[in-house]
Design a protein around this nucleic acid. Sequence first.
DNA 1: TTCCTTGCAAACGATTTGCATTGGA
DNA 2: TCCAATGCAAATCGTTTGCAAGGAA
Lengths: 161, 161
Amino acid sequence: MRIIPILASASYQGFGVMTTVDQRVEERLSGRSVRYTRARRLVIGALGRAEGPRSAAELHDDLGRQVPVSSLYRSLGVLEEAGVVAPHHGARGVTRYELAEWLAGHHHHLVCVQCGAIEDVIVPKGKEVGIRELVDTLARDSGFMPLDHVLEIEGRCSRCA
Amino acid sequence: MRIIPILASASYQGFGVMTTVDQRVEERLSGRSVRYTRARRLVIGALGRAEGPRSAAELHDDLGRQVPVSSLYRSLGVLEEAGVVAPHHGARGVTRYELAEWLAGHHHHLVCVQCGAIEDVIVPKGKEVGIRELVDTLARDSGFMPLDHVLEIEGRCSRCA
DNA sequence: TTCCTTGCAAACGATTTGCATTGGA
DNA sequence: TCCAATGCAAATCGTTTGCAAGGAA
């Protein structure tokens, strides 16, 4: 989520000055009696540094293979349950995770159909409001209760073009 | 894709009167020297009848288990390669397929986070133009070559609400 | 102590593939 | 005819889980 420096930075959304992602996660987890263990901290750190959603295997590499893949799956599961990370389902049945929106800010995805890489993008506020209204209308008209939305832009990234 | 009767119907986009999905697929495949076999016809028929993307397992049921799952995977692979169907990656590593946009018309998805069901929706033309412009801008600004886009609206469907 | 987390390996489920057989242009 | 498509079973690959050991409260 590094692309969104402003939203992801220290003081965001009512958290006082100098509240880091790590601190906000810690607070949320303790409020739910969920331990913020070493492995979980490493995962949050890696996701905070990533440019987009990461899979368990990718995180395993990102973290220098010091955390076994099965533990990553378990950590990701707990963090997802706690609403700290959110899953994204991509090609070849791979699930990638990213920090939840209250941590990373609302954004959309550029998905490379060639190499599978996913990059985050943010939409200018004005446009985003338009999208949200559209989403609400479409959902309501179908008796659907909208919770979130993502605009997935598929194409070829600069490297694969 | 049944939700989009007008776009999916007989005469669409420059194909003469009474051109069915089946005929258009036949034409496209023969133009590429790809056989339109019994299994492939059944798959196209089932997708044409579906309300949204279907997985290999779901198609297996839809077709009364007369086509083995492995054959469905192979048919879907060929049809995807030929640009006749398009994949959608969902929860639990399940890939669902739908007719490509030139057959089904451009649309978006309502994804139920509870049961995983996906429903197609179309956006009024005016709004859709706005989305397309936004997509082009966002992609270009990131050195990305946009090919397609889907607005995924996640929420709870009427049955799960 | 007591409950939660971790690591390893076995289990699972979706998808892919090898191979012998069948089918379509 | 003759290569491509199919069916079945075995193999893959991402992900989940059982179980014993390690940690924190």
